[in-house]
Design a protein around this nucleic acid. Structure first.
Lengths: 196, 196
DNA sequence: ATAATTCTTGAATCAATGTTCAAATATTGT
DNA sequence: ACAATATTTGAACATTGATTCAAGAATTAT
């Protein structure tokens, strides 16, 4: 017995992600979000409460839809080595997907609010830990299957690969040279084979 | 035949670096800079012209004084392998020095204004290219001396190590676990030994 | 049709932003 | 001492920021 919402919150958040990605949290003005979503301030505040809440929603939505996290989700059953390689392949080649290299909201948020906003920092840390855990699991399984060298511990390798991905996210801010990223990914993945 | 400046511009910029590091460019308010430097707005604008110019000065100063760039400076003569290892060691262990892991203004600026502000982006890109070039030179010399495997090209290895450093800068925003970073650095540096 | 409820709209609000400027102050040459 | 020049100061300014809210519009139940 009341008026309905005229927009889909998820769509609004999806559009907001693009704004936060290119301008950052502080850099994104509410007016930018209004322009992109075509939803006026009153409605935005009615639905989301605050700019910060919209940012949090954007972060949460991002981890749900980013290819990297989707792929990692079935770390328990997917073919280990192949899946790890796919993680890097998608990152570099599938630039229209969410989370493609240089378009990671998590990396951007980490740089911007990491250590400043306690709550978001803690949440980001959890996200990283979860990714690392899944990556670790994948490596464990890969080692058991003999697809990955057991010279280094799964945890070490997982943390190393996670770092590599973050580094690529930084550099891709101005580099769009896929060949370069392919070479880097190859060098990083080679760590999975070292016996010494 | 006029009044003298009562502050040292370089000192002011050094203090500004800390503010820009923790709050970012947009996040840092002039009033924050006034508080930290104890120089009032009029004087700041008289000396530097604008907030953006202060940020640029901070960036330029940062590359001059950061240990990473200082160490890289004599890539032409320093012992190659040892120097590369020192780069990572300083990054992780010498946390009071400029550019210590998690305190790199270049990484932060890259994430924030990379792709947005054309001029700063171009400048940042040059900085990265120069670092990569010096790192590359170090690797070339290391290969010639037999200290580094020649399986991969110097350029590939340099780009890979550069990425690793950037990744560490991101993660260190909330991690302060040196043991973890040591393991990561070790895994990354192992790439210099792979023969296959 | 009316009441009840919820959403939309956009002007208004208030705090904070980067920047400017006139007045006061300090220094140097004459 | 005085003129000339340059710097400091902080209040003032214009702009932009996030947020609020009263009025209007849409939907449903009765």
């Amino acid at each position: 017995m009341a008026r309905h919402r005229e927009f889909e919150p998820t769509e609004v958040i999806d559009k907001s992600i693009d704004v936060f990605l290119s301008k950052g949290y502080e850099g994104a003005a509410i007016r930018d979000l209004i322009k992109v979503t075509n939803v006026k301030s009153g409605s935005l505040y009615n639905s989301f409460g605050s700019k910060k809440q919209m940012f949090k929603n954007a972060l949460e939505r991002f981890v749900e839809v980013s290819q990297f996290n989707i792929t990692l989700a079935d770390a328990e059953t997917a073919p280990p080595r192949e899946t790890i390689e796919k993680l890097f392949f998608d990152l570099i080649e599938v630039t229209d997907k969410r989370g493609a290299v240089g378009k990671c909201l998590i990396s951007r948020a980490t740089m911007e609010v990491g250590g400043v906003d306690k709550e978001i920092t803690a949440w980001l840390q959890e996200v990283f830990e979860k990714s690392e855990r899944l990556l670790c699991r994948l490596i464990e399984r890969g080692q058991a299957a003999g697809e990955i060298s057991s010279f280094r511990s799964p945890k070490e390798l997982a943390q190393f690969l996670a770092i590599t991905v973050q580094g690529m996210q930084v550099m891709a801010r101005f580099e769009r040279d896929n060949k370069k990223f392919r070479a880097i990914a190859e060098t990083a993945l080679a760590a999975l084979d070292y016996e010494k």
